[in-house]
Amino acid sequence: MAAGPEFETSAARKVLIAEDDANIVESLSFVLGRAGFEVGAALDGNEVLRRLRVEPFDVLVLDLMLPRRNGFEVLKAIKAEPTLRALPVLVLTAKGQPQDRRLVETIGAEAFMTKPFSNTDLVEAVRRLVRS
């Protein structure tokens, strides 16, 4: 199984999951945790930015439809903030419409994945972002 433990490549790497669906947060935390990542979660857009400003993360997995401050805004704020700009962002969304994807790419997301995703692909995408 590709999602098996691989501590040697991803030890101590921190991933923040920005997602408002508790079940998805739970399963993602589990698979990323099993893949050796240290995982944090934020349930709304404001919390994402608050967490990122006080705690260093290596990758952000960002859902677009977040309460309080949507994923577009969060992404834009990250890319506008000199201390956060370098953080790789994997945008995760159920709204796989091409216009959303274009908008996200314009703002500057590093990767894009639509729901439903496979755990293996997601872990692989996070690994790729950590390496780059």
Binding site: D21, S27, V31, P116, F117, T120
Partner: peptide
């Protein structure tokens, strides 16, 4: 997405 992810686990 939630079902698929949990089912894979």
């Amino acid at each position: 997405a939630a079902i698929k992810s949990s089912a894979e686990i």
